[in-house]
Design a protein around this nucleic acid. Structure first.
Lengths: 308, 308
DNA sequence: TGCTAGACATTCGCTTGTCGCATGAGAGCG
DNA sequence: CGCTCTCATGCGACAAGCGAATGTCTAGCA
């Protein structure tokens, strides 16, 4: 309807317009803005040329808003306020007073490592909204690379190459534990060799945990009979507690294991420590960087405790 | 908190920002905007300098919004939309598709003259909001001068000077009528001299109407006995209909007089025609100018009928 | 491994816009 | 009748913004 092209409207113009509207005079507005009166005069004239209407009525003593000016006024105020909001939010982003931190983590990292860091982070930066998504490491690596996550705690497969657009920050190396029922002869042992467990009934799930383990110790390792399969932790550990077999538990999840199950470290010669990393884009967010620091602290606190 | 001064943020920048955000690449945005790629590159850099944060992540194939960019995006859209609204409303103002017309009128002009013009105006420009305030002419002249009314229909006192900042547009000259009860001997007359009414009982109100009349014909005029006073039209004409006396009616109000009252023109030698004007600021609004045209047409239609 | 294509960054020169200074024009006020 | 206050305008200087060309980096391909 209004065919005016109006290529670009500079917002400095709107500041001047608002100043004049409040001051009621070009000269007074110029004093407020630190401009000269001539600058204000021509700024207003430029705005009037753009809008195609007189914004002010020129009076012998100052100016007064015309009807077009009265129409424009609330819009100019809205634009000014919106720009101020934008600046405030961007500043809050820099100072971690606001913004969004999108986290990802594989499931056993969600047992203690991430929640602890998250609690400290929330206490320190309550203005930042934090979201967390659980899922397998590969998925998170892709999300970080796609820019849809700011930081993810992953345990990448050692044989697979690190993806593009992702920087890995080493957090800790996690030993593997074997979960046994309390009455098991190995329950009190410091550690155990895989060969010693060759005859046990292994309870496996659909996770890649067992694959990693048994691929790492190929020949010497036991071929589990996989007589029992369980999908989730509760069921697996329930079976162990009932004496139906043994299963693997990553050390990071040790703290959330039911007390009637004994955890014994696997001998380091049999299984390499699983590396736990934080994955970020090459240029992480301010919030992601801060969270990474907290993750490092938490990992250090957790490391001596991983043996339980 | 966010101490950044950020003297002025040009909105052309925001158009560029939005184009890049939608296109996903500087080059594509430049094609859309009709700019070169280098121009877009520096515009974005300028915006990033102002906001103090990277708005886009540079990828080998185009760019992607960073967190700061995601924060800025809705604000930039809001600003763009608001500026578009402002332009649309200002354009509507020019084409009389919108806006506000603030009218004023003295009471008897509100009987037929203004409402008729107003009806045509509303049919022709339904987008314009029209407000109308009744009141004495002096008050309206002041409001127009103060810029608080766009157009007022007034009957200024002939002896008082025209106020400053007000342009008067002549509409018509209104004769004075005398209201008599139907049985009065003069009821059928074409016109009547004031001297012939000297013995009548005059019903006066608080309006300046009678002052104007009797000041205009000082010596020859009758000194009314003012035995009856009534505040409003209904009461005055009711008294006339009951044969209690006679009263004055301005011709513009003739059409709204009850049918059992006879109206007789006063001889032009005894009373000057009362001038009816439209008062506007020196530079009237588009809507006011249009309304003035309609007032002129209505006045011309009304003039032959003022004698009833 | 080298080549090409596509994308952003940068340099250079010019046009355009914007500001300050000074002056002019117009209207109240003593 | 001049004084003073207002906005408008001509002029020169400076900075911003643009286009054209070039540089740099990466991905894909032979």
């Amino acid at each position: 309807m209004a065919g005016m092209p109006t290529p670009h409207v500079s917002p400095g113009l709107y500041e001047v317009f608002l100043a004049v509207a409040r001051a009621g005079s070009f000269t007074a507005a110029a004093r407020v803005l630190g401009y000269t009166q001539s600058a204000v005069s021509r700024q207003i004239q430029a705005l009037e040329d753009e809008t195609g209407a007189a914004l002010f009525e020129r009076l012998p003593r100052g100016v007064r808003l015309s009807e077009a000016g009265r129409v424009l006024l609330p819009h100019a105020e809205a634009v000014r306020d919106r720009l101020a909001r934008a600046r405030a939010e961007l500043a809050a982003l820099r100072t971690l007073d606001g913004g969004l931190l999108r986290l990802g983590a594989f499931s056993s990292a969600g047992a203690a490592l991430v929640p602890r860091a998250q609690a400290v982070f929330r206490a320190r930066h309550p203005g930042v909204v934090v979201t967390r998504v659980e899922g397998p490491s590969v998925k998170h690596l892709g999300l970080v690379a796609a820019g849809e996550e700011d930081l993810a705690v992953v345990s990448p497969a050692a044989d697979r190459p690190a993806p593009e657009g992702v920087t890995l920050h080493h957090l800790l190396d996690e030993p593997m534990l074997v979960a046994l029922d309390r009455g098991h002869p190995y329950a009190g042992r410091r550690d155990v060799r895989l060969a010693e467990l060759a005859d046990e009934e292994w309870i496996v799930g659909n996770e890649r945990l067992e694959d990693t383990l048994f691929r790492a110790a190929p020949a010497a390792g036991p071929r589990p009979r996989t007589g029992l399969m369980a999908q989730d932790w509760i069921a697996k550990l329930g079976a162990v507690a009932a004496g139906l077999g043994v299963t693997l538990v990553p050390a990071l999840a040790a703290s959330s294991v039911r007390p009637d199950v004994a955890l014994v470290t696997i001998h380091p010669d049999d299984v390499p420590y699983r590396g736990i990393f934080a994955a970020t884009p090459p240029a992480p967010t301010v919030a992601a960087t801060a969270f990474l620091g907290l993750l490092r602290e938490t990992a250090q606190e957790l490391t001596p405790a991983t043996g339980r």
